[in-house]
């Protein structure tokens, strides 16, 4: 059965790659038929990161205010020259956009007003898997058109994510995406999906008891993760949170456990940058296994 399963999954994957190629090939003709949008506004932090990478700057009128927040978005200096919006309907309408890109969450009243007034709105679902990211890339390029540069970027993304091994035979090392106050990523989140794809076990998958998104120190110590990613720690201004990471038991665990540092924006939203998170995890896994052999 495993052999069959593998075969089917391989053929599925090659099929889907084939379709993607077909889509990319077809997209320019479709887009050329209708006018390409020239005044694009994004009101969602996840949409910002896709728009900014796949659309020429001249056509981007405005991005959301969170695009400048280094904890949510990796765009950084790319946004310096672009107008920033706060997602209110009045603000967006005054920008006179011909395409408004948004995500699944936030600013719902704005979105419904814009739609009622006949603005073109593209809603990109929240990406929880690598395939979701591919879907969003396709949705966006269908709407805004594509060029050589963006095609190359997308191709590279497919290339990198395709190389991700799917291993099922060995005892899998345990990965935890651990945030301050003991919050952990759920199993239906992008970080844990990536970890599973790369060949890690995640807490939700291994221990059914722990379906919550919070874990106390004791449970974390007993589960003994093989790899920990520490998310952003929120300790610029003092609070109990900043004390949390200094607990002696946690410090001891971190001393014994391999750590990686994936910047939050890499996988908070699914974007082309997510491939860097995948690379970091893959490399960590290889290092873990080579240490084990030695």
């Amino acid at each position: 059965m495993p052999v069959n399963g593998k075969f089917i999954s391989i053929s599925f994957r090659s099929l889907s790659i084939y379709f993607r190629g077909l889509l990319l090939f077809l997209v320019p003709t479709i887009s050329l038929a209708s006018e390409l949008p020239k005044r694009i506004v994004s009101i969602n932090v996840c949409a910002d990161q896709l728009v900014a990478t796949l659309v020429e700057q001249e056509r981007i009128i405005s991005l959301s205010y969170l695009s400048r927040d280094p904890n949510s978005s990796w765009l950084g200096s790319l946004t310096e020259k672009i107008h920033i919006n706060h997602g209110t309907a009045e603000e967006i309408i005054s920008l006179n956009p011909d395409l408004v890109v948004t995500g699944a969450f936030g600013f719902r009243p704005t979105v419904s007003i814009l739609k009622r007034l006949g603005y073109r709105v593209l809603e990109l679902p929240f990406a929880k898997t690598i395939d979701d990211i591919s879907t969003n890339l396709n949705l966006l390029t269908n709407a805004v058109g594509n060029n050589k540069k963006t095609n190359a970027l997308i191709d590279r993304f497919y290339e990198e994510t395709k190389k991700v091994p799917i291993s099922t035979t060995e005892v899998l090392p345990l990965f935890v995406n651990y945030e301050t106050n003991g919050w952990i990523s759920r199993d239906d989140s992008l970080p844990n999906h990536i970890a599973q794809r790369v060949g890690f076990n995640t807490i939700g998958r291994q221990y059914e008891v722990l379906t919550s998104h919070k874990i106390d120190l004791e449970a974390l110590l007993i589960l003994g993760p093989d790899l920990i990613n520490i998310g952003y720690q929120w300790n610029e201004s003092p609070a109990l949170v900043s004390e949390y990471m200094q607990h002696p038991a946690l410090e001891e665990l971190l001393r014994r456990t391999k750590q990686i540092n994936v910047p939050d924006p890499y996988w908070l939203c699914g974007s082309l940058k997510t491939q860097d998170a995948i690379l970091i995890l893959k490399q960590a896994r290889e290092e873990l296994f080579s240490n084990r052999k030695n």
Binding site: A219, I222, G224, P225, P248, E252
Partner: peptide
């Protein structure tokens, strides 16, 4: 503890759970 009554037991992944971890839990938590 949060992992049940008595001394906690855990499934092992790559590494065996170190007995030091148990004493760490007792002493520090």
């Amino acid at each position: 503890g949060s992992m049940g009554i008595g001394l906690p037991s855990a499934h092992t992944t790559l590494n065996k759970v170190d007995p030091k971890i148990y004493s760490l839990i007792l002493q520090e938590i």
